[in-house]
Design a protein around this nucleic acid. Sequence first.
RNA 1: UGCAUGGUAGCUCAAUGGCAGAGCGCCCGGCUGUUAACCGGGAUGUUGCAGGUUCGAGUCCUGCCCGUGCAGCCA
Length: 501
Amino acid sequence: MALDFVYIEDLAQLEGTTGTLKGWLYNKRGSKGLYFLIVRDGTGLVQCVVNQEEVDAASWDAADAATQESALAVTGRIVKDERQVGGFEVQATHVELISQAEDYPITPKEHGVEFLMDRRHLWLRSRRQWAILRVRNRIIMSIHEFFQEQGFVQMDAPILTGNAVEGTTTLFGIDYFGEPAYLTQSGQLHGEAMAMAMGKIYTFGPTFRAEKSKTRRHLTEFWMIEPEMAFYDLAMNMDLAEAFLVRIATDALRDCQTELEVIGRDTAPLEKVKSPFPRLSYSEAVDLLRSDETTAMLNAREAALQDEQQQLTDERDANQKAYGQAKKWRKRQIDAREIEINKRLSEVEEALRNIPQWRESAKNFEWGSDFGGSDETVLTWHFDRPIIVHRYPAVVKAFYMKRDPDDDRLALGMDVLAPEGYGEIIGGGERATDLQFLKDQIAAHGLPESAFEWYLDLRRYGSVPHAGFGLGLERTVTWICGIDHVRETIPFPRLLGRLKP
RNA sequence: UGCAUGGUAGCUCAAUGGCAGAGCGCCCGGCUGUUAACCGGGAUGUUGCAGGUUCGAGUCCUGCCCGUGCAGCCA
């Protein structure tokens, strides 16, 4: 197919030729007789130079009239210029205004979260969002490639279900022709059925949780990848999860250099995502949490934060003192810096408020409870790569988990915790195979056995050892991108109190 | 749901209980290589809502609404 225009990502192959770009105006600078149009087309950014002496009057008028996010077609010579974004520049010979944008609300300056979230449909055009969502795309491709190359069959679990797997409080209920139904919370039970048909499968679909959680880690609608493998035990499951994450990180580092740079991701921590991952049993993790080593580490972090707080406060005071005599450009610089300082200071203050509680929570952690968010964060601070925690107390895990044959109090579950405080991105384990054990567990969890008859059939007809896990896509993208909130990792996030746009 | 924190110009944010301000954006003018360009000028306000204290409230008090984060729960 021959296109009558070229894409910015292909400019390197087109150096020295003349081509037409079609895109939107990202930013504009100018002086007398000269405009610099920064154009985006979805594949990248490029600067187009419009010189009044080298274009016709209509082209000059078009460049003059173009406002932010106006649609443009720019024809010109493609030249290399290391100084420019993307390394190339287009010297325009013709400019056409395809459509003029009204006042675009998102300027190249800073905006608040609520303002941007209300305009998410436009925010997607910003460079940082472009980069994050391209990393998401790369990760999705890595996931499919990883499983497909190993003979896994992708199978979708239903989104409408009648099964309440872990209690109905976190399920979105709907009316299914007069019958109660729910939006799925996990495809796992159906995944098990499909694994008994195909051997190795993975699901890739949306899941819904009606948790009233307003945190940087929670969405009410998110995408989950759930592999399920017949004849896999817990150790094989952990090996697979580890290889899987190494693949995702390696691919992103190799293929998303530009995107990670735009986001400002320090890639050094990602370079360390290599096998083997540290593996701790739950009991070992509890010992580590309670240890003097953990207390010392938290003390050191606290001291570092206090130093930073002092430095920032000093800098702000010095700036305020200098403000009176400062030149205009310097005042502007100080204003911008003050906003940065205040933002960081409130983060530091928050952390300083939290650390004493975290230290107490870790020191007094009791064997038998589940880890809180802070405990997970504290654990991961001890390591430079993802860690796997396995063999949890059965009481804190789901009914379908297999018990540890060596210790009946334990379930053969495992979680993978991402480094840098990103926390749980994978949860899974080996599934119970015994029919009577499952019936007892369903009863013990207060679940209606009738709803699980089909699931119990899997144990009646050729029950085999099997295992699997679930990966939260958005949490994984958040970690790989090194950003602080899941809401930027999905095109249209669904959060508590947010259903639009 | 509990705790913390915030709501001031279109946006991001300042303002000891004492004349509501800056930068950006917008409009006008200048500038032939800018990098969130720069320089000069201009317009822009129901300080979230409702009460209260006070000579005087953006600031203090009470209630409500909305945002953000943390906890619980989880991927």
